[in-house]
Design a protein around this nucleic acid. Sequence first.
DNA 1: TACTTAGGTGTAGAAAAACTAGGGGTATAT
DNA 2: ATATACCCCTAGTTTTTCTACACCTAAGTA
Lengths: 292, 292
Amino acid sequence: MVSPPRPKMPGLNSLRAFESAARHESFADAAIELSVTPGAIAQQVKSLEIWTGKKLFKRHSQGVELTALGVGTLSDFTTAFDALGEAVIKLRANAVPQEIRIAALPSIAQLWLSPKLPEVRAAMPDIIISLTALEKRPIMMREPFDLAVFYNERPIPEKTIAVGDDWIFPVCSPEIAVNLNRPEDLLDQVLLHDTAWSGDWKNWFYRFLPDQKLHVTGPAFSLYSLAVEEAKNSAGILMGHSTLIGEQLASGALVAPFDHKLDIKRSLTIEIAGHGVNTSVLQNIIEMLLLE
Amino acid sequence: MVSPPRPKMPGLNSLRAFESAARHESFADAAIELSVTPGAIAQQVKSLEIWTGKKLFKRHSQGVELTALGVGTLSDFTTAFDALGEAVIKLRANAVPQEIRIAALPSIAQLWLSPKLPEVRAAMPDIIISLTALEKRPIMMREPFDLAVFYNERPIPEKTIAVGDDWIFPVCSPEIAVNLNRPEDLLDQVLLHDTAWSGDWKNWFYRFLPDQKLHVTGPAFSLYSLAVEEAKNSAGILMGHSTLIGEQLASGALVAPFDHKLDIKRSLTIEIAGHGVNTSVLQNIIEMLLLE
DNA sequence: TACTTAGGTGTAGAAAAACTAGGGGTATAT
DNA sequence: ATATACCCCTAGTTTTTCTACACCTAAGTA
């Protein structure tokens, strides 16, 4: 009566953990990708190694390295999980075609996308547009988004649509601007920082005031939009990103006291999911976002 | 500091349960394939339906039917899980190349394969040959076997190698055979049955003694090899399978009292895994198995 | 040389996921 | 009418997976 035992296959989760760890060559990065702790990755990988009977990684104190065996199968697993991810995303897109999911960098979501969405929603009242702010660009094959709006270094990858190049230049409230005539006037001012883009001031100074030692002492904000608000409140000078502060410059809430603009060689881009669902709706949304 | 929550993807196990259930159009069959209870499948499918927000199956009292949404994505999932299965099997084959895993029907394993293996092992002393008896043919893309020896209806599928056609005819020990001259002499004899092949006697009688009512009263065995042993011990008449009792006929332990043989339109076949590892070793093994 | 940092390991306990068991229900087959 | 085959649901249990540390090692830094 007992049916013969079939040889067990390894758990699917251990395969996913291996694939992620192998792709990043890092348990820590895989842990971030899968939203678990590195210890969980280590355990899953170990269980797969026990199943195969061979080590998949060489452990070093500073990281891991794939063994020959691991190298040989990584691409198979990546292909398989890509296919699986696409199947899931396509399923979701087909199941809820009236919902469009957009992923964007928090700053882009708040400063660029959010102001444009009301118009898009008004034009497409039966479409639900959801917006998720992510610090890191999602892998469109693996995560359930229809559009992703992020920065890309130029030249931008294929399959992405350029929205505009990103230039940086100091901006501030009109009240403060009256005291600023030359870049040197910045030296005794409060310089507002975004924690994620702490290099902005350094880069700009390096380009336009190369002889000046920079004081990185200003207040730091974890969200660029907070820094924008503070700048509007005359709390200091902000390094403005051309792609993000268009609204504020247009309304006059912020002004650019100088003409010194630095191209940071990246563009705001829109990436479209490859699931092939809702293509025309997505095209319409993109067109509306690109206007003006 | 808190990283923004990414939208959760459904659990991998629910995807596998859905794929299996959809492929079989049956929760019960999926449960067998995945070695769980049907309730487990139902729960996994439900959790996927909750994630997608739509029903994937229409439930009927006699079974399930895929919805349009389910139909549309089944092939994507099947493709993905096939790729994943192949990746795992290839990994295993590469990790332990000195081991060859053979799956076979229990009767084939014991009566056909097992007698031939010592010679194969002697010829390849550094290869470990493991043999697993399975009631059902494994899906070679999903389960870790290198060779599968099973019956196939003729015409046999591509990619399988025919070993020999299966004919059935009564066999018994020489002592019993002296009393058997014509098929009619079987009527008052003990007829041994294999539970899995209970139709054998019926088919043979239908062909050669169509006018006789058949008594299906003989002892039943869950393993054909047990029935063979009993037949050798003169416990009764066995319906012999040409592909399985060659040894016994050759040694004289069993004899065929009549010339009445029925072709049951199937062949013993060997299927080779598609992972492409160890191809030449596998070819050698198959050649040895096909000898004589 | 000693400290710090980055990244991996191992274990125990906790949390989450998955499974089984068992009681229902509804069609189809006998 | 009764049995059978399937699916559903819920409760409780088992298994898996994860976290939380404490520990280890190598490389960079003071």
